[in-house]
């Protein structure tokens, strides 16, 4: 089954300057797809189109289900007062957007995911005091709360040391195999990224 189907997609930030031109691709359920390429080749732009953050100029994108997104970390998060629990729980928000408080099911879901990712025992810890690898685990947990099918990661191992990168990749593999979650990862870490995924897609200047 296709979870994402892109047909003849074109996109440009200014008219006449297409960053992406005529892209077609399909992502199947259970894929571990890696989009690699140099900086400025349009990886993140493509991803933002899939997420609906960029309005496509031409072509079509169909996505089945909600995508759990893991954006690159921003400066705001560097000293943001928030506990692991607060952040992971916020991933359940789209499930019941009209409610005022989190429901019991939300809390249960967040708890299970935190346990699986070995975050539960330190759930009261503050986000900005965690190590780089732990921070990524928290953000992966949040994206898992938001979806049952697809997660999309933007440069998840940027600036992490090799040992931690290996751990993150192993974790993603596990999520992909055991939970059957489709993973799309954008990275410029070509060599290692290609080795762990089951499908590669090298982006160049389109």
């Amino acid at each position: 089954m296709d979870v994402i189907d892109i047909k003849n997609l074109s996109f440009g930030y200014y008219s006449g300057h297409d960053v992406l031109k005529n892209i077609s691709m399909k992502v199947h359920e259970g894929d571990f797809l890696c989009i690699v390429g140099e900086n400025g080749s349009g990886k993140s732009t493509l991803m933002k189109c899939i997420l609906g953050l960029n309005k496509v100029t031409k072509g079509e994108i169909s996505v089945s289900g909600r995508i759990g997104y893991l954006p690159q970390m921003t400066e705001v998060q560097n000293n943001f007062p928030a506990t692991i629990e607060e952040i992971v729980l916020s991933g359940t928000l789209p499930d019941n957007i009209r409610k005022i408080f989190y429901t019991k099911q939300d809390k249960q879901k967040a708890k299970e995911i935190m346990e699986k990712l070995q975050l539960y025992d330190m759930r009261k810890k503050c986000f900005y005091e965690l190590s780089g690898g732990q921070k990524q685990r928290v953000l992966i947990a949040r994206s898992l709360c938001a979806t049952e099918k697809i997660i999309l990661l933007d440069e998840p191992v940027n600036g992490l040391d090799p040992k931690i990168v290996f751990e993150i990749y192993e974790l993603l593999k596990k999520i992909n195999k055991e939970n059957g979650i489709t993973i799309i990862m954008v990275s410029h870490d070509v060599d290692r990224a290609i080795r762990i995924c089951n499908k590669g897609n090298r982006s160049r200047k389109w």
Partner: peptide
């Protein structure tokens, strides 16, 4: 809850 999500991570909130 929404103010927290939007303040912490606007891109994630928009994407979901």
């Amino acid at each position: 809850r929404k103010l927290f999500a939007v303040t912490f991570d606007e891109d994630f909130s928009k994407a979901v």
